[in-house]
């Protein structure tokens, strides 16, 4: 508890000290004559805040519309694929269910930030064991455990029905969910943070080891947002726009060798240094991507 308390203190103290204590703020800035130069050069990964360009307010209407269309398209496919998966589960077709599991999830993983904005839908669909009260655990990972660990579809019919209903509910809700530019910006980073904290470690798909499907889908979801914001970003900070584009290319190239047929190899076949390299490439992308907020103006 002690540690977790100290963390936000350090992170947020700066804004308070600077906002509240004018003298101190000035002092701090005046301390180092090179601060300005330091600021610009130090932040290779941070955008150069340019007063000239930030004055023009960006219009995100089209990007938001296009993103909603993308989310609807992904949700449609998600419902369809999930239905195929749950049908197989209910019909007791173990191998077929296992084959349909990871591909169906990719449609969800691409738009995960939207699902997270929709109340309990994310835990209902995507909670892992221990994420929620055991009595409330349902969704994909409960079935994953049955298929891979218990090697059976027995007892999963009800869970499958519920999962399909949750998927359909998600589809219904995305029509009207609030999407604004800041959700796009933070959503892209969240998608990569998801990879960083659970997929690259093999925690997400602990029974099926299909983590790379989720990994790729999260990255694709982030890339979609980047593509939509790219014109605005290119106006505001072309260097950042280029860096992010390059890092997407590098990460996808790093993932390419792990493709296998229509899918991806099992996480279990990854060597330690391969995992580390994937993680480092992900960090190399997520760091500049986290500065896309520069297009939001101040």
């Amino acid at each position: 508890m002690k540690y977790s308390y100290a963390l936000p203190a350090g992170l947020i103290a700066s804004s308070i000290l600077f906002a509240g204590c004018g003298d101190n703020g000035n002092n701090n800035k005046g301390n180092n004559s090179n601060n300005e130069a330091a600021a610009t050069a130090a932040a290779t990964n941070a955008p150069a805040v340019n007063a000239e360009t930030s004055a023009a307010a960006a219009d995100f209407t089209s990007a938001i519309e296009q993103y909603r269309a993308y989310v609807i398209e992904q949700s449609d496919a998600f419902v369809k694929q999930t239905e195929g998966f749950t049908d197989a589960v209910k019909a007791g077709k173990l191998d077929e269910a296992k084959a349909l599991y990871a591909p169906a999830r990719m449609y969800y993983e691409r738009i995960e930030p939207i699902a997270e904005a929709l109340g309990d839908l994310d835990p209902n669909i995507d909670a892992r064991e221990n994420d929620v009260d055991p009595a409330e655990w349902r969704g994909f990972h409960k079935i994953e455990q049955a298929l891979w660990q218990n090697k059976t579809t027995n007892g999963m019919a009800e869970v499958a029905d519920q999962l399909l209903k949750d998927a359909q509910l998600l589809r219904a809700k995305v029509e009207t969910v609030d999407i604004d530019e800041s959700l796009l910006v933070t959503g892209a980073v969240e998608l990569l943070n998801e990879v960083s904290s659970s997929k690259v470690t093999g925690e997400e798909e602990r029974y099926s080891h299909t983590d790379l499907y989720d990994f790729v889908a999260n990255v694709e979801g982030a890339q979609k947002i980047y593509e939509l914001l790219k014109p605005e970003l290119a106006k505001k900070d072309p260097a950042l726009e280029k860096t992010i584009g390059d890092k997407f290319t590098a990460l996808l190239a790093e993932l390419a060798p792990f493709k296998s047929g229509d899918g991806y190899v099992s996480y279990e076949t990854l060597k330690e240094d391969e995992v580390r390299k994937l993680s480092q490439n992900l960090d190399a992308l997520a760091e500049p991507l986290s500065n896309m907020g520069t297009i939001l103006g101040v």
Partner: peptide, 30 residues
Amino acid sequence: TAAAALTSGTLIGNANENPNLPPSDTGEAD
């Protein structure tokens, strides 16, 4: 440039007060 700031106890970078961006200095030495 970062080292010059770090050794003099000043914050790194120029995005430490922009609400839309991750602060350019991680802040724990502020």
